[in-house]
């Protein structure tokens, strides 16, 4: 476990370089110890892929970062602010941290454009015309500006997920969290979403992605984290992670996902 903390070389440099810091974080669901002693430091601009078997706690980990899940012990510091029970502070952090979900979670009663402008207008107090303009820019960036007036139910899965990404980007987040963004998609649509994410990564966004897309991890990630049973087992640069895994558990996992 100690190697986890050591693997982030920039930890001690200037604090404004650190986007997220998780210090000895524990979490339980009732009796079930789901996160065990998580130590993780994410630098600004860093792209991290988290993988692991289902039930290993990887989704829970990133959901703790914007407090969709509450941790019971340890500290989580996001953008210099510690997550406590202070509701105002939680909302402030959430507005700086974008999140993309496995099932898109677009708002079905709003048009694509309204999905994108709702938070800027009501959280950031952006004037509507400006919010519309910025939203159209983001929709152009994810290559679906022509769908702006449609409802989410009229779009394909891949398009919906790209709208979800655009919706998050409209808040100009400093950090983006992706919770298995391609797991609910048809094979034909995975690529368009991954392309959007790669494009985002190239723009210098701080990203944490829970994903099973190992190709994405290899090309984009600065660091790959492997989790099992609530612990960070191993983390390394993608090249070392895939070619020279340290623990037996990682080797077993890699052999199972890479051989089919």
């Amino acid at each position: 476990m100690s190697e986890a903390a050591q693997a982030s070389p920039l930890q001690t440099s200037m604090s404004e370089e650190i986007a997220i810091q998780m210090i000895d974080v524990h979490k339980w669901y009732g009796e079930f110890h789901v996160l065990k002693d998580i130590k993780l430091t994410v630098n600004r601009g860093e792209r991290i892929v988290i993988c692991g078997p289902s039930g290993s706690g990887k989704s829970t980990l990133i959901r703790c970062i914007n407090r969709l899940e509450e941790h019971q012990r340890g500290q989580i510091i996001v953008d210099g602010v510690e997550l406590t029970n202070d509701v105002k502070q939680i909302d402030a952090i959430r507005s700086e941290v974008g999140m993309v979900f496995q099932h898109f979670n677009l708002f079905p009663h709003l048009t694509v454009l309204e999905n994108c402008t709702l938070a800027p207008i009501w959280v950031r107090k952006t004037p509507k015309s400006q919010a519309d303009e910025e939203a159209m820019e983001m929709l152009t960036r994810v290559k679906i500006p022509e769908q702006a007036q449609k409802y989410p139910g009229q779009l394909s899965g891949g398009q919906q997920q790209r709208v979800a990404i655009a919706r998050s980007l409209c808040m100009n987040p400093k950090i983006m969290l992706f919770d298995e963004p391609t797991s609910a998609l048809d094979p034909e649509m995975i690529k368009e979403v991954l392309d959007t994410m790669i494009q985002l990564a190239e723009s210098g966004m701080t990203m944490l992605c829970v994903t099973h897309e190992m190709g994405f991890a290899k090309t984009v990630a600065d660091r790959v984290i492997f989790m099992d049973e609530g612990e960070i087992i191993e983390q390394n640069r993608p090249h070392e992670f895939f070619n020279n895994p340290q623990s037996d558990r990682t080797k077993l996992f890699l052999s199972q996902i890479l051989t089919h």
């Binding site: 509701v87 402030a92 979900f101 709702l118």
Partner: peptide, 27 residues
Amino acid sequence: IPKGQYEAAQALGLSYPKVMTFIVLPQ
């Protein structure tokens, strides 16, 4: 209303009254 709707709205930084007013209650 699926839990994901609450989560998506909260993740955007909307406060409880706004989540209810704009996302949950209309649906």
